[in-house]
């Protein structure tokens, strides 16, 4: 009995980590963007675009790493577009994010269909074209799982312990103060947005060529928004957001396990409840029912410098 519990617990934790990997990468990416004052509801789109280009490139070149590179470049392209609209042209950040999500949802299928003629899918990837699980340290995990795990302390260090991080946090709180100190607000925000693109790109590549063996339409299935929810739930702090990602990943893993299972006394547990929980919890948090999430003060406000 005990053994069974332990092995289920082990399986669950391994499953949780695998499910949480793209969430973690994406949430850390979003953290850079949002701490600099740029709202990113376009995480989903960046991830989706990266997933497609990673799978397409891996399939075309036969190299998984070329796929990862292409995924990152695709996400960076969207990140730059977001920056161009929101930082350079002071456009509405939410509108821009929504636009990029829709653009990515359409473009991945249009291009996939045009290039591979499989109704928007990429050809199934062979073992060489995928990032295969490592044998060590924990059998079954892709290297990107470890990258995701490392991205958390790295983000914490970069944001909390470096000059760049200090300025990044400052620009998200009071850009005028940063400007008055003689530092470029736009420069900092572009760097933040690019870091976000890098991490969201890795997340997308993971989904397409490590977790799965190819691209399918809308394969990110809202994970970008779950990552955003985790970021908010974690109050825009790296380790808290990491915890939220794990919790949301666990909910997902439980949902998959409970599917069709009858729990004595309750009956069949609705899987959809678990799917909705991350959003509901985040909304409760935002409404101040459980603690308080205080967003960076300058978030969503374009910085206008008068001359």
């Amino acid at each position: 009995m005990m053994d069974e519990v332990l092995s289920i617990a082990f399986l669950m934790s391994a499953a949780t980590l695998r499910v949480a990997t793209p969430l973690i990468l994406c949430a850390m990416g979003g953290l850079f963007s949002e701490r600099s004052g740029i709202i990113d509801v376009g995480l989903e789109g960046k991830m989706l675009m990266a997933a497609f280009f990673a799978a397409a490139t891996a399939s075309a070149t036969g190299s998984a790493w070329a796929g990862v590179g292409a995924g990152v470049i695709a996400a960076e392209a969207l990140a730059l577009l977001h920056g161009f609209a929101c930082i350079t042209h002071r456009g509405n950040q939410v509108v821009s994010g929504v636009a990029l999500n829709i653009l990515a949802a359409g473009l991945t299928v249009v291009l996939g269909n045009a290039w591979f003629k499989q109704g928007g899918l990429t050809p199934p990837l062979t073992a060489n074209e995928r990032l295969m699980p490592l044998a060590f340290p924990n059998a079954g995990d892709s290297i990107l799982v470890y990258v995701a795990l490392l991205s958390v302390p790295f983000t914490w260090w970069l944001v909390g312990r470096t000059r760049f991080g200090l300025r990044l946090r400052a620009v998200g709180e009071l850009p005028l103060a940063v400007d008055a100190a003689g530092i470029s607000v736009a420069g900092l925000r572009y760097r933040a947005v690019l870091l976000c693109g890098l991490l969201a790109g890795l997340a997308g590549a993971y989904i397409a060529i490590a977790q799965n063996a190819g691209f399918t339409r809308d394969m990110t299935a809202g994970q970008g928004f779950i990552a955003l929810a985790a970021l908010i739930f974690g109050k825009w702090r790296p380790f808290s957001a990491f915890g939220a990602c794990l919790m949301f990943g666990l909910l997902d893993a439980i949902a998959i396990r409970l599917q069709g299972l009858k729990v004595p006394g309750i009956g069949e547990v609705p899987v959809q409840l678990f799917q909705a929980l991350p959003y509901l919890l985040t909304m409760f948090l935002l409404a101040g029912f459980i603690g308080r999430a205080v967003a960076p003060k300058a978030i969503g406000v374009p910085y206008t410098k008068e001359h």
Partner: peptide
């Protein structure tokens, strides 16, 4: 997506 981008954000 492009219409939202160009007539909204840009």
């Amino acid at each position: 997506g492009l219409v939202i981008l160009f007539s909204g954000a840009l």
